[in-house]
Every structure is written in structure tokens, then in C-alpha cells.
């Protein structure tokens, strides 16, 4: 593991205020396998609950403890032998609990990783197996996933106990079509949103399991992925990305889009696209939205950051000498951007 501080990155200079994205540390996984994901998680290490970084390679998941001055030390590693790891699924307010998805192209298994308080012994258990289409970790140690095909489609909400040893399962009403992604609704903890293959946005009541509404958002944006929703003044503001979106000349390359929906009438209006600055191209590959910040890895290997309120692209992180960026996450506890490359490097930028 090496530590770096202060390397400047390219900032988008055409905005009124320049943002500050500064490299503060670098984690290097010595494993030769391909890196796939990164996140942050609360974990109790030597008796203290602290925010740790968790990284995933094809067959290992590692937990990194923060040392002084932005240095990190690997403290735990879970090993997998049969199915490769695809993604980390954080359960945001949980401690000593995190889920991971395993599979080849599609998710085949979801596993819970945890350690018991007494001996800090690492454990894992199978949470769900099958043909899993979409999954999201929620607050209050909950996980939602959709699985099965059209005829046996099922949406499950699981709640884990504090130690991770047991879980309660509730079934949410199925929209009877493939769900592409789930998103939490900020400010409304019992509401859950989903986008479907047939360009619908669906809303559930997590407490009752009811499917409240299915709303068509237009076929121009097929296969949209919902990242975050905000409820305000009776309206729902939804941030979407379009992995299959084509470049529209008048708008440049819209990577994210903000739409507003009236859930009562199912009518929606475009608010704004979040496009790349002129001279930059690429389509959405991976991304993360936290509060008013959206970050995306593009097919060009660049990371772009937008302020959702201001509408500007605020920073561009070009591929560095180690290679292209392949995944990006906001840290759960502070405004740090975690940017990863396939070779095992994870860079931490303060924003």
C-alpha cells in the first residue's frame, strides 16, 4: 500500500466555481486477480467501530482499516473459490455486516459477510441464490432483491439481525416485469423505487409490501437505471442513467438525467440532462449518486462528477498512467470519491 497526497486532477474549468478533487491516498491490492468494486462500511476493529474501506477482487473481498494520515491497512480478507465476486452491496447503517453479489455475467448468489463481536472471527452465509436481476442494500440492515423470470418473478425484502445470524423475509408485490435497478427515496424511508426493462418506474411501500404505482417514462430512455430519488412538495425527483443511451447532438452526451414525477397522476417531465463537457465522449459504464453529487465511469475510461443542483460537470478524472478507471463510489461517511482500476488499485480523492 502506498500513500499519495496532493496530485492535482483535471478540473472542468468552464464552471463558475472550481471544485477541489484531491488525491489523498492509494490502496494497492497485491492480488493478481481483477478488481471489481469498492465501498465503505462500518466495522468493529480491535474493539472500535470505525469507517473502513472494503474492496472486491474476483475471488477475494478485503477490509481496510484507516490509520493516521490517510493510510490504510488490510485487516480482513474473505476468500471465494467457485463463483467470482461481481459487486459489493453495502447495508449503509449496519456495523460488521456487508453483502456481496457473486456470479459470472448475472448475479447467481448473494452472500452476507460478517464477523462475530467476541472473537472477530470472519463468517459468511448464503442469503439468496438463483437468477437475481437487481439488488440494493437499504438502511436498517435491509436488502431488497428481485429474481426469477417473468413467470416466477419475485421481489424479496430481507432484514438481518445485528449479528447477521438470522434474517426475516418479506415479499413485495411483483410488477410482473424485469426490474433493472432499485433506488431509495431520500426523506421517505418506507418508499422504494425501481426501474424496469419496459421503461416503467415502480414504487413500493416497504412496510406493507404493496406496489403503489407503475409509471411509464417514455421509450426514448429504454433500460434506464435509477440511482436515487428525492421526495419534495408532493413530487418525486429521480436520477436516472442510460447505459444504452445514444449521443444526442444538441445535448452532447447525457450520462445522467433528472426527471420529476407526480406519483398521483403518473405524469413526468424532464428536468435536466447531465452531459459531458464539449470534447469529451463516452457512455455510462458505472456510477454512484450521493446527496447532490453524481459520479460516473465512462466507456472512455474517464470519471466525471456532476453537481445535481447546479447542473454542471464539476470534475473530470482522466485515466492515469496505471490505466482506465473501471468503477467509482462515494464513501458513505464523508465526501470522498473512491475510484478503482482493474489492476487492483483504489484511489481515494477528497471532494
Amino acid at each position: 500500500q502506498t500513500k499519495v497526497r496532493g496530485d492535482p486532477v483535471e478540473i472542468w474549468h468552464d464552471s463558475l466555481e472550481l471544485s477541489n478533487l484531491q488525491l489523498v491516498s492509494k490502496l494497492k491490492n497485491p492480488s493478481n486477480s481483477c478488481s471489481v468494486d469498492v465501498s465503505t462500511v462500518w466495522w468493529e476493529v480491535t474493539g472500535c467501530k470505525e469507517s473502513c474501506i472494503i474492496t472486491a477482487c474476483e475471488f477475494t473481498v478485503s477490509l481496510w482499516k484507516s490509520l493516521d494520515d490517510w493510510q490504510w491497512r488490510k485487516v480482513h480478507t474473505w476468500h471465494f473459490t467457485e463463483i467470482p465476486v461481481l459487486q459489493i452491496i453495502p447495508l449503509w447503517d449496519a456495523c460488521n455486516l456487508v453483502c456481496i453479489a457473486l456470479g459470472h455475467l448475472e448475479i447467481r448468489e448473494i452472500r452476507l459477510l460478517f464477523s462475530s463481536g467476541e472473537d472477530e472471527c470472519l463468517k459468511q452465509s448464503l442469503v439468496k441464490s438463483g437468477n437475481i436481476k437487481a439488488v440494493l442494500g437499504l438502511r436498517h440492515k435491509r436488502l431488497v432483491c428481485s429474481n426469477g423470470t417473468l413467470h416466477d418473478h419475485q421481489v424479496d425484502l430481507m432484514t438481518f439481525s445485528g449479528s447477521g445470524r438470522s434474517k426475516e423475509k418479506q415479499t413485495l408485490m411483483s410488477p410482473e416485469e424485469t426490474i433493472l435497478a432499485f433506488a431509495e427515496v431520500q426523506g421517505m424511508q418506507d418508499a422504494l423505487l425501481g426501474t424496469t426493462l419496459m421503461s416503467n418506474i415502480v414504487i413500493w411501500n416497504l412496510k406493507t409490501g404493496q406496489l403503489l404505482k407503475k409509471m411509464q417514462i417514455g421509450t426514448a430512455y429504454q433500460a434506464s437505471i435509477c440511482h436515487k430519488a428525492y421526495s419534495d412538495m408532493g413530487l418525486l425527483f429521480v436520477v436516472l442513467s442510460h447505459p444504452h443511451g445514444k449521443e444526442i447532438e444538441s445535448m452532447g452526451s447525457p450520462i445522467f438525467r433528472l426527471i420529476v414525477i407526480n406519483p398521483k397522476t403518473a405524469l413526468s417531465v424532464d428536468v435536466r440532462p447531465y452531459s459531458l463537457p464539449q470534447g469529451h465522449t463516452g457512455r455510462f459504464l458505472d456510477g454512484d449518486v450521493k446527496d447532490n453529487l453524481a459520479a460516473a465511469v465512462l466507456t472512455s475510461g474517464t470519471i466525471a462528477v456532476w453537481d445535481l443542483f447546479l447542473g454542471h460537470c464539476r470534475a473530470l478524472l482522466l485515466p492515469n498512467s496505471d490505466g482506465n478507471w473501471s468503477f467509482v463510489k462515494w464513501s458513505g461517511t464523508d465526501s470522498c470519491l473512491l475510484a478503482g482500476q482493474k489492476n487492483g488499485s483504489v484511489f481515494v480523492y477528497s471532494y
Binding site: 411501500n205 406493507t208 404493496q210 406496489l211 412538495m233 408532493g234 413530487l235 420529476v260 407526480n262 398521483k264
Partner: peptide, 23 residues
């Protein structure tokens, strides 16, 4: 956005949709 674009807005949409939706 106005009501002409989005129709009548309800601040209690979540509770109202919950009471209208099939259990």
C-alpha cells in the same frame, strides 16, 4: 414544472396511494 404538466399534486401522495393500492 406546473400542474398543467404534471396534474394535481398531493403532499400526501404516499399515504393516498397506499390506501388505494391492492393490499
Amino acid at each position: 414544472c406546473s400542474e398543467s404538466d404534471l396534474g394535481p399534486i398531493s403532499l400526501n401522495w404516499f399515504e393516498e396511494l397506499t390506501s388505494e393500492a391492492p393490499p
